[in-house]
Design a protein around this nucleic acid. Sequence first.
DNA 1: GCGTTAGTACTACCTTGGTAGTTTGTTGTC
DNA 2: GACAACAAACTACCAAGGTAGTACTAACGC
Lengths: 128, 128
Amino acid sequence: MSQTQVHRLGDLQLQILKVLWQRGEASVAEVHEQLPGGADLAHTTIATMLRKMEARGLVTHRANGRTFIYRAAVAEDQVSQGMAEHVLDRLFEGRLADMVSHLLTAREVSRAELTRLEQLIAERKRQS
Amino acid sequence: MSQTQVHRLGDLQLQILKVLWQRGEASVAEVHEQLPGGADLAHTTIATMLRKMEARGLVTHRANGRTFIYRAAVAEDQVSQGMAEHVLDRLFEGRLADMVSHLLTAREVSRAELTRLEQLIAERKRQS
DNA sequence: GCGTTAGTACTACCTTGGTAGTTTGTTGTC
DNA sequence: GACAACAAACTACCAAGGTAGTACTAACGC
């Protein structure tokens, strides 16, 4: 019984989830306001999307009077990991170093970021 | 003019591309054989998918008699980077360390892999 | 020559993400 | 009590991924 597939989410769904993760709960109107670039979208677009997402088990809602207050039903970590692992496995056969290598050559990474990475890896090495 | 969107490919498309990258060229039947789990799919499924992919600019073909020989029209690096960057940006706001951190906690990573990562980062640091 | 085989082409259907208009119902206000 | 405002529900479309059956056609074997 596949527990809500979290590795294939569209950009809009992701952005909506981000708003919910950040705020805990939000009405359709609040999601709409907080959504980056949400001004371009109709109110009903957000509402429809939220209903679809609820049908897929990504969010839940409770009623507050006639207004629905939505809440994420999947954890941020669950989604982040699900999507990141999906790409890692499908594209790089699970070889993390390959993935990082691609990303390092493809973009600017600050020195601070590199240092953080070094620390992460060193720590992980110590634990194994 | 958006150059073929390479960040949103389905799993089947990806697997087909992998076969083509690996072999250079392949007929529908060859792709079908090489496809992991391809035995579950109908021949026409692969053929249809290839035609759709050609329409999207992902592959091209030449005819060899009555048989079509397909070839990838997008580079592996282009796709890998496109998809990896997409996830990195959408999910982790571009913070590579966050992404790696998630991946490191979510799965087993061999010591050899960790060492390779260290080397990559050290090298990158030297260049900056 | 004729039938079998092995290709592609065409068509069709389902799902999901994305987008939004229209309808219906509730609520609060004058 | 009538009406305006607003929220959700319903309906509708489009694009794309995925899947495959059916139709057409060229080649090959006998």
